[in-house]
């Protein structure tokens, strides 16, 4: 599963990599601001197929903004502007003039910090994405829903009560339901924004287990301010601070021998 990278350190501590495959996502000189206040400053980042990349850093460092800019969910925020740079998905500019933002979001599913079940049944929640995409046949929907629930390690807990309201699930179950909903839309990239922030350790463990399996099929970007979680789950870690990408590289390398003192300070718990 592990991909070998060779690293050479540049000035500023950034790791430049020579890699075997084309990046799934390429973030180039990306700057984003809210009402003129910069939230991201010229971020460069490559994300490769079938890896888990953890975006980590203290609150307000721009992790969530980066995630929401990648799948154009920030289009909804009126004050948000991409002031510079671009995001490429399979080489195609996500903000290109002919690009359909809805199709982009379908290809890059999102799971939010707090569970966001829709006020529908468990089944209808998971079937939401496929239905939106136009799938109507019940047999096909059932198939997709079961697979998504199995992949999110929730099937055994809910298979007998798919018609129940999603709100009757526990917090941890709701979050796995949201992962299942994201999977059911058959995306290429999974964007997870602090998916375990409101959960207990057992639920967190279940979600981390699910992620390790899911990267076989998807490219995963995981936002987490929790450095231990990043170290446990991620292949690579990117460390953001005040809108700047300070450092990124292989997870063990960033954790054990970071190139930048700010990264070291953060991972050793001196701030954040």
């Amino acid at each position: 599963m592990t991909r070998e990278f060779s690293y050479s350190l540049e000035a500023g501590g950034r790791a430049a990599e020579s890699v075997p495959s084309e990046p799934k996502l390429l973030v180039e000189r990306l700057s984003v601001s809210y009402d003129g206040v910069a939230a991201l400053r010229s971020v460069n980042l490559s994300i490769y197929p079938n890896e888990v990349l953890a975006l980590t850093g203290p609150g307000g460092s721009g992790k969530t903004t980066l995630l929401r800019t990648i799948n154009r969910l920030n289009d909804r925020i009126r004050s948000a502007r991409v002031t510079e740079g671009r995001v490429l998905l399979d080489g195609e500019d996500v903000y290109g003039p002919d690009v359909d933002a809805y199709a982009i979001r379908q290809r890059m599913a999102m799971v939010f910090a707090l569970p966001t079940p829709l006020p529908k049944s468990i089944f209808d929640n998971v079937a939401y994405g496929p239905r939106v995409a136009g799938i109507r046949k019940m047999a096909r929907l059932r198939e997709i829903v079961e697979r998504a629930l199995r992949d999110a390690i929730l099937w055994d807990e809910v298979s007998s009560r798919l018609g129940d309201p999603a709100m009757t699930l526990s917090g941890g179950q709701q979050q796995r339901l949201c992962i299942a909903r994201a999977l059911a839309q058959q995306p290429e990239v999974l964007l997870l924004d602090e998916p375990c922030s409101g959960l207990d350790p057992i639920s967190t463990l279940k979600i981390e287990d699910a992620l390790r399996k899911l990267k076989e099929q998807y490219t995963i970007v995981l936002v987490s301010h929790n450095t231990q979680q990043a170290a446990r789950v991620a292949d690579r870690i990117a460390f953001l601070l005040m809108g700047e990408l300070v450092e990124h590289g292989r997870a063990d390398q960033v954790v054990t021998s970071p190139a930048d003192t700010r990264t070291a300070d953060y991972f050793q718990g001196r701030f954040g």
Binding site: N71, L73, I104, Q106, F112, L114, T116, Y128, G129, A133
Partner: peptide, 15 residues
């Protein structure tokens, strides 16, 4: 959050 969840699946405004 309901709207965000819906949009994040690729749903249109009308959907």
């Amino acid at each position: 959050s309901f709207r965000e969840a819906s949009f994040s699946t690729g749903a249109s405004r009308w959907q």
